[in-house]
């Protein structure tokens, strides 16, 4: 059954992460260090930061964390082990489990990030629930787009460079839409007036996930 297969693979990812915690710890530390650098270079010097800059800075931090977090999806385990997964799991299950797991990681990163970021940089957000919705949609979008790109980049030799070069242009349309939505949340505009932007973002996420499901099997088979 495909669903149980996905579930088993997600559990495997979590157990792996739990056993050697350095990856997740490293990610949180990376996030904290970046936010603190931003705090030192903006807030501590000028006492105040423009809300638009606050928002853009936070999304850039999230973007870099996402590239780091998702980029290792396929390079973490050895090629032999990938062949082992190939023998018993459908490629669709592999990519969907990666997307779901990465979405969870990105949600965690976003929530820890917004907490720590608000702590040191202040929080000018007018409509927090809408901002959280944009964070959730962003987490799904980042995770799904970057999972497929990570799968592609893992095939090449210099996969870290490849990952950055391929993912940044791809993520920009998503990032622009996210910036627009979170800007609305920042200005305190109500949820009901942002339905079409939420719908576009949701549609984009779904399109990327469907595309990943169709295209990933071709990457997976050797």
């Amino acid at each position: 059954m495909a669903l149980t297969e996905i579930f088993v693979l997600i559990r495997k990812e979590m157990q792996l992460e739990w056993r050697n915690k350095y990856a997740i710890h490293g990610l949180v530390l990376y996030l904290a260090a970046t936010i603190f650098i931003c705090y030192l270079s903006f807030k501590a010097k000028q006492q105040s930061i423009h809300p638009i800059m606050w928002n853009t800075l936070f999304w850039i931090i999230l973007l870099f964390s996402a590239v780091n977090a998702v980029g290792k999806s396929f390079t973490q385990e050895s090629a032999n082990r990938n062949i082992f997964y190939y023998t018993f799991a459908k490629p669709e299950s592999v990519i969907f489990s990666k997307i779901i797991y990465n979405t969870l990681v990105m949600l965690g990163v976003s929530l820890i990030g917004i907490f720590f970021y608000s702590w040191v940089m202040g929080n000018p957000v007018g409509n927090m629930p809408l901002y959280l919705i944009s964070l959730i949609l962003g987490a799904i979008g980042f995770a799904s787009t970057l999972s497929l790109v990570a799968g592609i980049a893992a095939q090449g030799e210099n996969s870290a460079t490849l990952m950055a070069v391929m993912s940044f242009p791809l993520i920009i349309p998503l990032l622009l839409l996210l910036l627009k939505l979170s800007k609305s949340a920042l200005d305190g505009i109500s949820l009901s007036e942002n339905w079409d932007e939420i719908a576009i973002l949701g549609a984009l996420d779904i399109i990327v996930i469907v595309f990943s499901g169709i295209l990933f099997p071709y990457i997976w088979k050797h």
């Binding site: 592609i152 980049a153 095939q155 090449g156 030799e157 391929m166 295209l215 990933f216 071709y218 990457i219």
Partner: peptide
């Protein structure tokens, strides 16, 4: 760039087609 990093023609064709 992706094309130039992959050397095996079949793998290169598959991966770059997907991209």
């Amino acid at each position: 760039l992706l094309r130039s990093t992959l050397t095996d023609p079949y793998q290169r064709a598959r991966i770059t087609s997907v991209y």
